[in-house]
């Protein structure tokens, strides 16, 4: 059997499949179904310094082969995460990534400083959540703002730092380069694409927040394109996500340039997806006589 392990910014993952932030909470629920070690890592729910209630409902709308969400960073706050969730998570035999969010540069620095003194393995900076008025997306909008927030946070960050990029930008490669220049150890992309649905019977948006973040299979080609472009633009590891739902998608995302992948929305359709994807990866690698999953990364042929 091939080796599925990957190393991202010095952190060893038993396989390249990471649960995407916000889709698995702090792991308890999916942990009822299988050991969380089926994932190489878990990116926890976006966490802010203080508890946040999140947006008023409805928060969810279905789209063709996808969905919108406007949960709005509902989370119990950094202290609860560190004292209650993290000790349990650390026993689950998988890499624990904290997903940090905030409203101001100061918030981001403070939460990074707090998390740096804990047992989390990595910090993923969420500067791309489209669902909160002051929730970070403004920091992810331009290369300048990404560079500024990344270098500010870098000073406080003693853990490997992943910058999570928003697809809602005109040139994703410039944003990725800005993160790299400012000291990011890796980038993850894509966060959700801002979308909207209207109930034609009531003439009202289905989501109370009016707009929501789009995810799921429908965004996959956009994510593959962006990962492909970013891989060519930066030297740091690239974590690819957005709409991956089968092992074939995982292979494709890695061929486009991903060193590791995250899966989110597919968990809602099929909670057992991570197991099926790693089995599929094993099968593919064995059939193609590859010894390591890392041999897949960036192997797309474009001539």
């Amino acid at each position: 059997m091939a080796d599925l392990s990957v190393n991202i910014a010095g952190v060893e993952f038993s396989n390249p499949i990471i649960a995407a932030s916000g889709t698995i909470g702090f792991g308890h629920e999916y942990g009822e179904l299988y050991p969380l070690s089926v994932f190489g890592g878990i990116s926890c729910k976006g966490t802010t310094l203080e508890e946040r209630l999140g947006n008023p409902p409805p928060r969810i709308a279905e789209t063709s082969m996808g969905m919108l969400n406007a949960v709005g960073l509902q989370n119990p706050g950094a202290e609860h995460f560190i004292n209650v969730e993290l000790p349990w998570l650390k026993k689950q035999n998988t890499v624990i990534i904290a997903n940090a969010a905030g409203s101001t540069e100061n918030d981001y620095c403070k939460i990074t400083e707090l998390l740096s003194d804990t047992d989390v393995d990595m910090i993923e900076l969420n500067i791309s959540c489209p669902n909160v008025k002051a929730g970070g997306a403004q920091f992810g909008k331009s290369p300048q703002s990404v560079e500024k927030i990344t270098s500010a946070v870098r000073k406080y960050c003693k853990k490997p730092l992943i910058i999570k990029l928003s697809p809602n930008v005109s040139d994703i490669t410039e944003v990725a380069r800005a993160a790299e220049c400012a000291g990011a150890d890796a980038v993850s992309l894509i966060n959700t694409l801002t979308g909207m649905r209207i109930d034609i019977n009531t003439r009202r948006p289905i989501i109370k927040n009016v707009t929501g973040g789009m995810s799921g299979p429908a965004v996959f080609p956009v994510a593959v394109r962006m990962v492909y472009q970013v891989k060519k633009a930066v030297k740091i590891p690239v974590i690819g996500l957005g709409g991956i739902s089968t092992w074939q998608d995982a292979v494709e995302m890695m061929m486009a340039g991903a060193d590791a992948i995250q899966i989110g929305t597919v968990l809602f359709t099929d909670p057992y997806a991570p197991i099926k994807i790693s089995e599929g990866l094993h099968g593919w690698l064995d059939t193609h006589e590859m010894k390591s999953v890392t041999e897949l990364t960036g192997t797309v042929i474009t001539d």
Binding site: G22, T23, G25, E29, Y30, E32, P56, P57, R59, V71
Partner: peptide, 11 residues
Amino acid sequence: ACGIGACLGCA
């Protein structure tokens, strides 16, 4: 979405 308490969608 998830139906099991993980995504915080069904508030």
